[in-house]
Amino acid sequence: MEELLQVGVITSTHGVRGEVKVYPTTDDATRFKQLKHVLLDTGKETLPLEIQGVKFFKQFVILKFKGIDNINDIEKYKRCPILVERCDAVELEEDEYFIADMIGMAVETEEGKEFGTLKDVIETGANDVYVIDSIEHGEVLVPAIKECILNVNIEECRMKIHLMDGLV
C-alpha cells in the first residue's frame, strides 16, 4: 500500500505573496482546512510544508505555506503534486478505497479466471469506471457498481468482477 497519497497538484501561483492555486485530487476539497502539514513532491525530493492559509476559488484551493512569502520562491513548483501521509488521509467508508491502493491490482472473473490488471480509475459523476488492461480483450472499461465489482481485497491486491453482457 502507498504510504503517501496525492491530494492535489499546484497549477499556478496566485498573487505575488507566495500563494498557489491547487487543483484538488481528493473527493473533498474542504479537507485542506484541516490539514496542517503536507509534502511537496518536486520530482527530486519531498519537501515538508506547513499550511498557513486556505481559501477556495472556483474549483481550486488557494494555499499559503509558512515561510514562502514571495512568488519567486514558489513559482518553480508548478505542476508538482501535493501529498499527505496515510495517517493524515481521510477516513474511508465501507466499500471505499484509495485509488493509489488499487492501481496494479490483479483482476479475475467470478469463475476465478485471470482477466487482467487494473490500470486506471476514471471518476465520473454517477460512478467510477475501472480501466482494466485485459489479457485477451485489451482495454476494458468496467463500471464500479455492485453488479460488476463483486469483491475488492486491498491486502491481497485482487479484485473479482462480473462481466455484464456488452462489456467485452
Rank of each mutant, 00 (worst) to 15 (best):
E3H: 04
V7I: 10
V9D: 00
T11R: 10
S12N: 12
S12D: 14
T13V: 15
T13C: 15
H14K: 13
G15E: 09
V16K: 06
V16T: 11
V16Y: 08
G18T: 01
E19G: 05
V20N: 00
Y23L: 11
Y23F: 15
T25M: 14
T26Y: 10
D27P: 09
D28R: 13
F32L: 12
F32M: 04
K33A: 07
K33H: 09
L35T: 15
L35S: 07
L35F: 08
K36H: 09
K36P: 07
K36C: 00
V38L: 13
L40G: 06
D41N: 06
K44T: 08
K44V: 11
K44L: 14
L47T: 11
L47C: 02
P48C: 06
P48V: 10
E50I: 04
I51Q: 02
Q52W: 03
K55D: 15
F57R: 08
F57E: 13
F57Y: 08
Q59R: 12
F60H: 12
I62R: 11
I62L: 08
I62M: 13
K64T: 14
K64P: 01
F65L: 12
F65P: 06
I68Q: 11
N70K: 07
I71N: 07
I71V: 15
E75I: 07
K76F: 02
Y77T: 03
K78G: 15
K78F: 12
P81F: 06
P81M: 10
P81V: 08
P81H: 04
I82D: 00
I82G: 11
L83A: 12
V84D: 15
V84P: 01
V84F: 06
E85T: 14
C87E: 10
D88F: 13
D88G: 06
A89F: 07
A89I: 11
A89S: 15
A89E: 15
V90P: 14
E91W: 00
E91Y: 03
L92R: 05
L92D: 07
E94Q: 15
E94L: 10
D95A: 06
Y97K: 01
F98P: 13
A100N: 07
A100C: 08
M102W: 02
M102K: 01
G104Q: 04
G104Y: 04
M105Q: 03
A106M: 03
V107M: 04
T109L: 12
T109E: 02
E110I: 05
E110F: 07
E111N: 11
G112D: 11
E114H: 05
F115I: 00
G116E: 01
G116Q: 00
D120I: 07
V121A: 01
V121N: 04
E123V: 09
E123M: 13
T124Y: 05
N127V: 13
D128K: 10
V129F: 09
V131H: 04
V131Q: 06
S134L: 06
I135M: 09
I135A: 08
G138H: 00
E139W: 05
V140S: 01
V142C: 14
K146P: 02
E147H: 08
I149D: 02
L150V: 13
V152M: 09
N153I: 13
N153T: 06
I154Y: 02
E156W: 00
C157Q: 14
R158K: 09
I161V: 09
G166R: 05
G166I: 07
G166A: 12
L167M: 12
L167V: 13
V168P: 00
